[in-house]
Design a protein around this nucleic acid. Structure first.
Length: 473
DNA sequence: TGAAATGTTGGGGCG
DNA sequence: ACGCCCCAACATTTC
């Protein structure tokens, strides 16, 4: 009997449900499920490695302990497997980081020469980046235009696929253990970090259910308040493919079409837009999408960067955010914008240094989203915030954390300071500070920069930028 | 997915 | 009764 044997190569699709590559592999015969730690790949962030470890464990369990893991060079590993086993097909779901695209093209070509059928599928984007273009065949650079086109003119996202029935998972001898991949760091800091999370497909499903049942109804306004849990927190799961955007899309649209669900879908579309831009402009990892920013006078300042990273800026809402990141591998989106704006505008430190820190600390660290979001805040991205849009962290706190709940949660030094002064402790009368047991500069830092002055400096730096561009050459 | 500066309006206190 | 001032509240402009 000539039965098919397919290798399904897991990458950023660590799920069984709605996994096209796995689904079609299972339908045509037995399957080898494989995960490779690619030693050639750019370094993952440290938090991401921790997540990956636990996610692989969960996946392996769901596959009845038949997930093969190894590390090395994918082409070599796949070639060896073809030689040893009667492999007829190799499947994977597409990845979209520039290095992945390059790698996969090469591998596909080489494997085809060896007589196996190689197929790739779409598992992580609602719209393929090459499928959405302006009339002049160039990519969109404005979100709303992109979204309108994708939403109304592009192909409707496919519906979720079922779990593959009766996976005949081919057992391979001699597999590396997940523990051998050394994804966990030597020290124990990660235990506290991961304790806030439950990686894996099943947890993603229940987060989605929970979100659609009880949080979505207040999403549009609730999503701006970092103290409250009105966001989905699905971002890490989306990054690792523990849930598909297709499933989220269809479950949300079939629920209702309120403002809230529309808004949630548009956030999902921002993710698409980031992937889209990264596909069309792969240089934006290291380069400003708008070249006029190439000569922007960024400041190089290690000690200021460090204070920002450690949540010791002396501005409570920012410190709260940076500490949330450090302690939980996550930061609420509203606070990401505030703290990023502070780094890039008030401190005028290069967005790439902020992006690098987030990359290392976030469980949802994602090249497309992280890069594009930082460029957006810095003003050098597509459809970016105008240069003069500078967040005032005091006002933002008053507006979006009016009771100070979020700040109190992460900035314990100020726990006795009344709400009235929690957003700007330096403005509190000496007596109030004393009663709260706060000594500015000792128990809690003084603000590291003057907000008003640094705002002015940023404005004039950014303004020069536009003048330079307007000058005739 | 901002904030500050500036302009306008309208109600109430008060001579 | 009336005009004047003050100022909060809102609107518009500017960076």
């Amino acid at each position: 009997m000539d039965k098919n044997l397919t290798i399904h190569w897991f990458r950023q699709d660590l799920r069984i449900a709605d996994n096209p590559s796995l689904y079609f592999a299972a339908r045509q015969g037995s399957v080898i499920t494989l995960y490779i730690v690619d030693k050639q790949q750019p370094a993952m962030g440290r938090a991401s490695e921790v997540w990956l470890h636990y996610s692989l464990k969960k996946l392996n369990r769901a596959l009845k302990h038949k997930l093969m893991v190894c590390q090395g060079e994918p082409l070599q590993i796949l070639t060896d497997l073809i030689k040893q086993y009667p492999v007829t097909h190799i499947h994977w779901n597409r990845c979209y980081q520039p290095w992945q695209i390059k790698r996969d093209q090469k591998i596909k070509l080489q494997l085809a020469k060896q007589g196996v059928q190689v197929k790739s599928f779409n598992a992580s984007l609602l719209w393929e980046p090459w499928g959405v273009l302006k009339k002049d065949q160039r990519p969109y650079r404005v979100f709303t235009a992109f979204y309108k086109h994708a939403f109304s003119k592009a192909e409707i996202p496919r519906k979720s696929l079922a779990c593959p029935p009766d996976l005949e998972n081919y057992q391979l001898p001699l597999t590396t253990k997940i523990d051998d991949l050394n994804l966990l760091p030597k020290s124990n800091w990660y235990r506290q970090l991961i304790s806030h999370w439950q990686p894996g497909e099943r947890a993603a499903q229940s987060l989605l259910d929970d979100f659609l049942n009880s949080k979505l109804y207040n999403y549009k306004t609730g999503r701006d308040f970092p103290a409250f849990d009105f966001v989905s927190r699905l971002s890490p799961y989306l990054h690792f493919g523990e849930i598909s955007p297709h499933q989220i899309w269809w479950e949300t649209t079939s629920l209702n079409s309120s403002d809230n669900s529309q808004h949630f879908l548009s956030e999902l579309a921002w993710r698409e837009f980031s992937y889209y831009l990264l596909y069309h402009y792969p240089d934006i990892i290291n380069q400003n999408l708008q070249p006029k920013f190439d000569h922007f006078p960024w400041r190089q300042n290690r000690s200021q960067l460090l204070r920002w990273q450690q949540g010791q800026t002396g501005i409570p809402i920012i410190d709260a955010g940076m500490r949330e990141l450090w302690q939980t591998g996550y930061m609420h989106n509203r606070v990401r914008m505030i703290s990023a704006s502070f780094l890039v505008k008030n401190l005028r430190i290069h967005w790439q240094q902020g992006a690098a820190w987030f990359w290392d600390c976030l469980f949802d660290a994602d090249l497309a989203n992280n890069t594009l979001s930082w460029q957006w805040v810095a003003g050098c991205g597509a459809d970016a915030a105008p240069y003069f849009r500078i967040f005032n962290p005091v006002l933002q706190g008053q507006k979006f954390d009016p009771e100070g709940d979020y700040i109190y949660r992460y900035v314990g030094e100020l726990s006795k300071l009344p709400v009235k002064y929690i957003f700007a402790p330096w403005e509190a009368p000496a007596e109030v500070l004393q009663n709260a047991g706060v000594v500015l500069g000792e128990s809690y830092p003084k603000p590291m920069v003057d907000l008003k002055q640094s705002r002015q400096e940023a404005l004039s730096a950014y303004k020069n930028l536009t003048f330079e561009e307007d000058k005739p050459q």
